[in-house]
Computed example of a mutant assay.
Amino acid sequence: MPHIIIEYSANLEDEVAPMRLVEALHAAALETGAFPLAGLRTRAERRDHYLIADGDPGNAFIAVGVRIGEGRDAATRRRVAEVLMAVLERETAEIFRCRGLALSLDVSEIDGTASLKTNNLHQRLKARAKP
């Protein structure tokens, strides 16, 4: 796994295509080599109700949470965070120059004790790869 969850303020939708962020972060996470394709899930959630800093309605935010399974060392988690933040900064560079924009990214491990999963994606991807 990871689950990459992109939260963004509604006032950004005219300037940043949410699906573009989803695709860019998904691809970058895969390119790190830290995660299997079948475990990767990326989604964006628009936030309509928010207050940022001094309340200026032009202020905006994108907060990316990356929830990963246990077992990756601190250096790997840091590398993933840096790669994904670089993509986020690249994708929002023009907006950053023009208005108040808060970007954040957090990679956190999921405690496996009570994290249950059922899926067939690994098997389905293997079956598709066979000639």
Rank of each mutant, 00 (worst) to 15 (best):
E23P: 05
E23K: 11
A24K: 03
A24M: 07
L25T: 08
H26W: 08
A27D: 11
A27T: 06
A28L: 09
A28R: 13
A29W: 10
A29P: 01
E31A: 14
E31I: 00
E31V: 00
E31M: 04
G33P: 11
A34Y: 09
F35T: 12
P36A: 10
P36D: 13
L37T: 05
G39S: 00
G39T: 02
G39N: 00
G39F: 01
G39I: 03
L40H: 03
L40P: 07
R41T: 08
R41H: 14
T42S: 12
T42M: 10
R43G: 08
R43F: 02
R43D: 01
A44Y: 00
R47E: 07
R47A: 04
D48R: 07
D48V: 13
D48S: 12
H49K: 04
H49D: 07
H49E: 01
Y50I: 07
Y50E: 06
L51Y: 11
L51W: 15
D54C: 05
D54M: 14
D54P: 09
D56S: 02
D56T: 05
D56K: 04
D56V: 06
G58N: 15
G58V: 13
G58L: 13
N59K: 05
N59A: 14
A60R: 11
F61I: 08
F61V: 12
A63G: 08
A63F: 14
A63D: 14
A63N: 15
V64M: 01
V64G: 01
G65S: 12
G65H: 07
R67Q: 06
R67L: 06
I68K: 02
I68F: 00
G69M: 09
E70S: 11
E70T: 07
E70P: 03
E70W: 05
E70D: 02
E70N: 10
G71A: 05
A74E: 15
A74M: 04
A74L: 12
A75I: 03
A75S: 14
T76I: 14
T76S: 12
R77C: 09
R77Y: 05
R77I: 08
R78S: 14
R79P: 09
R79C: 10
R79A: 15
R79D: 15
R79W: 15
V80I: 11
A81P: 06
E82H: 11
L84F: 02
L84R: 09
L84V: 02
